[in-house]
Simulated assay, not measured.
Amino acid sequence: MKLLTSQKNSIYDLIVKNGLSPSQFKFSKSANKYNYDGFATNLEYKNDEFYFSFQTAENSENDHYAIFSPGDDVYFEEFFSRSWNSQLAVFSNWLRYLKREITVPDKWKVLHDQVDHLDLKIDQDNDKFSAKEFIELTNRIIELKESLNKIDLLPEQLEIINSKLDHLNKTAEDLGKFDWKSLFIGTIVNTVIQLNLTPENAQLLWSTIKNVFSNYFLIE
């Protein structure tokens, strides 16, 4: 369907209302799925493959139809909105779905990026920590917590990381060395993701860990 100027203005206003910038979008045309005599007007999100397609159904200019991605709980969704006002309601919902997807951190990507650059080497020794080894481990964790004060972390971020380190220190009393070191790496990676640390702070955190556990934790 060809959009009226007033309809495009309504679309513009809804984009702004949802906290997005109209400059992030562009209009395009494509075939109309259920109206072979017309075409669809698409609004594409420039920075990804997401879009909203304004279509009509059954060879009628009055039966509005929407095809869009992302959907509420599926990647691709279709909806017979029938009227223009209903179409705008569907479009407004789509903007919420879009904002959710473009603002949420990709935890799988962060996980890959974090682990990929670590170049870890952990020995397979899974014996329990001796009393002497546990004391040394505790001292290194204390050193790590002190070193974290040099990183520009928010107070609440620092508090969470320190709490995780205290818990890890406690678990070392019962776990074997290999199991504990694996838990340590997984906990730090998950914490970086949970706190949504900036790439700079995440890199500084790992560099600090490497320095503190050098020649002990076998992080290279």
Rank of each mutant, 00 (worst) to 15 (best):
H112F: 08
Y75T: 11
S86Y: 11
R100P: 00
W108H: 09
H64C: 04
V90T: 15
Q124K: 15
F76I: 10
F91S: 02
S81N: 09
I122N: 05
K99R: 13
S86F: 11
L98F: 02
L98A: 08
E61G: 11
K109Y: 05
S60P: 06
V104N: 07
D63L: 15
D123Q: 11
P105C: 03
V90M: 03
K107L: 13
Q124H: 13
E61P: 13
K109G: 00
G71H: 06
N85M: 09
V104L: 08
N59T: 02
A66C: 10
L95F: 07
V104R: 09
E61Y: 07
S81L: 05
D123N: 14
D116W: 10
D127W: 03
L88C: 09
W94R: 01
D125F: 14
A66T: 04
R96H: 07
R96Q: 12
S69Y: 04
P70R: 02
P105I: 08
D73A: 09
E101T: 00
L98H: 03
L95T: 07
A66Y: 04
S69V: 00
K128Y: 13
Q114M: 07
L120H: 10
N59A: 07
H117V: 15
E101R: 01
N59P: 00
K99Y: 02
E77H: 11
D72G: 05
L98T: 06
V115I: 14
Y65G: 01
V104C: 04
S81Y: 04
Q87L: 08
T103I: 05
K121D: 15
V74S: 12
E101H: 01
Q124Y: 14
A89T: 05
H117I: 14
S83P: 08
L111Y: 12
R82P: 00
S83G: 08
S81A: 14
L98Q: 03
F80N: 09
D127I: 10
E61T: 12
D116E: 14
D113I: 01
S92Q: 13
D63F: 14
K107P: 05
L98E: 02
Q87A: 13
H64I: 06
A66M: 05
D119C: 13
E101K: 02
F91C: 06
V110E: 11
K107H: 11
L120W: 12
N93M: 04
R100T: 02
E78H: 10
F80R: 12
L118W: 12
S92P: 02
D116Y: 09
I122V: 15
R82V: 03
K128D: 09
W108L: 11
W108T: 01
D116P: 01
K107D: 12
H117P: 08
L111M: 12
K128G: 05
